[in-house]
Design a protein around this nucleic acid. Structure first.
Lengths: 301, 301
DNA sequence: CTGCCATGATAGACGGAGCCTATCAAAAAG
DNA sequence: CTTTTTGATAGGCTCCGTCTATCATGGCAG
């Protein structure tokens, strides 16, 4: 059975006239006659009683026509809804973001994203890298903002911007007097995040420490880490986007001797169909953060 | 858009596997791939994200699939209902019957009709001939039981049985002493039905009277007419099927000298598609009344 | 690391379904 | 009786859906 034939049926039932119904359907009268007859044969019931001046729906037709109307209406609804979904820039976009980035990046890009992609319903999801990748592969996220490369043929990524690290010091720390701090100088009393945060490993690597850090404290979040630094427990390497929050906490920031930092990337499934939305989101973020690396090395945002 | 493609879509969404969905649909995997792609192109949205091991419905697909399910379900409902309507012997059958026939014929044929055509929902409609023909032509009746011929190329009819007339007399009427009554003998004090009843004209014609009957009473129904005869107001010509009711009223019945009577026919639109149901109904009535004419002339039913 | 298996996409060919124009048949209208 | 209206039929054309055969890619195991 064909939806087209059902539309023909409705047209004939409405007009009670094959010729006019055919015209309404945009087909010739013979075509409609033939299709109608085929439908009757398929259903095994007479749908219309052909009189000399009128074609009148039979009782069987009356019994069926409600279902026919619903079926055709649903088909139209499919087309209408699809038309509404037509724009890949529209609809829900679930974006995973690592915890050391989300609170500092989102306030910067929410506005520009809304301006550039008003129909996109952005749903941020904050979690650590491994969780984000798992959810990304499980189709529970559409893309993710990470500070690491992704591997595997099912995922791809693209760098959006470079985020330098800054030395974060308590105001009374000996290094606070220097204009520039060498990463290795931070190593003795560096504080890092808990396991699972990519920033933890990146900070340790930047300052030349191995993974063995039995005596160091481990903060569950960057916010906590900043509080610990401000309280004089030690130093840390801070992603530049968090500079504002650190300064508010009374922490002294100093550029590093090298251009150590991390690269924020957007990652997605290679099979993800809404590449345009993906590129647009990535583009807006990259544009907003353009030139950030240069300015941020001095603590300016 | 084709219902077939919607079924394909549902199959793929269910199996999350093109090959197995194709098997379930009874088509080859390439065919399903092609059709799916065409549907996506038609709708303008990606319906599935093809991964290496799975095809996963996109958000757009999730938004559409409810409508798809409904449309397909309605299409199935059409087929199912049509299958139920498939039997022309089943379903509503609106049968018009003239008032001088209905109360006496229906009790005789209701049982046999129910036995022979259990799926037929018989809806009797009692009205005078002209009204029945109007309703028949307006498709408000499927057939009609009349005592007259029909004309016009849009209607046809077939005789079912002959119904003799009997002389109906008050018990104390002079003619009650005769074994047989000549129609003309009834003319002087004959009572007839109101205008519009075909029996009125037929009775007058049988007893040789013209239409001018200024002084005679006119009953609105055969039942009233019988009461009037029983009360001694006059005589009448009675269709044989009403003999039982007349005798219950204490009326004397006598056979006529001639075999005057009327022929009950079933009439229908020539375009009426359920000829089998029509013939079956007519056949059951004719069979039930077979040999009725011979026996009824003596007042026996 | 390399060959094998599973899976979906693509290509080319074939058959049927749907559509058209032209024509017919029946019935109503003038 | 002719004309008009209306639906049915016939023949031909085009396109769509389907098939088989083949390719491309990613996962897995030896």
């Amino acid at each position: 059975m064909n939806l087209r034939d059902l539309r023909y049926l409705l047209a004939v039932a409405e007009h009670e006239h094959v010729g006019r119904a055919a015209e309404a359907c945009g087909i010739s009268q013979p075509t409609l006659s033939v299709q109608l007859r085929k439908l009757e044969e398929l259903l095994g019931v007479a749908l219309f009683e052909r009189g000399s001046k009128k074609v009148v729906p039979t009782a069987a037709c009356e019994a069926l026509i409600g279902h026919v109307r619903t079926a055709v209406a649903e088909a139209d609804a499919i087309l209408a809804v699809a038309r509404g979904l037509h724009d890949p820039m529209a609809g829900r976009f679930r974006l995973g973001i690592i915890p050391t980035l989300a609170p500092y990046l989102l306030p910067l890009v929410f506005g520009p994203l809304r301006d550039a992609l008003p129909a996109l319903e952005l749903e941020p999801w904050e979690d650590q890298t491994t969780v984000l990748l798992k959810r990304l592969r499980a189709h529970e996220l559409d893309a993710a903002l990470l500070a690491s490369e992704v591997d595997g043929p099912d995922l791809a990524s693209q760098p959006l911007f470079a985020e330098p690290f800054l030395a974060a010091l308590p105001p009374d720390h000996p290094l606070a007097g220097q204009a520039v701090v060498a990463e290795a100088e931070l190593a003795p009393d560096i504080l890092v995040l808990a396991d699972g945060h990519c920033l933890r490993d990146q900070a340790l690597e930047a300052c030349g420490r191995s993974g063995a850090l039995g005596h160091t404290l481990r903060a569950a979040s960057l916010s906590t880490l900043l509080n610990m630094v401000a309280a004089g427990y030690g130093t840390t390497l801070l992603p530049a986007l968090a500079a504002g929050a650190a300064q508010d906490a009374g922490i002294v920031l100093r550029p590093l001797a090298t251009n150590a930092g991390r690269t924020v990337r957007i990652a997605w499934r290679t099979s993800f169909p809404r590449r345009l939305a993906l590129d647009a989101v990535g583009g807006v973020i990259a544009t907003r953060l353009r030139g950030f690396a240069a300015g941020a090395a001095t603590g300016m945002v």
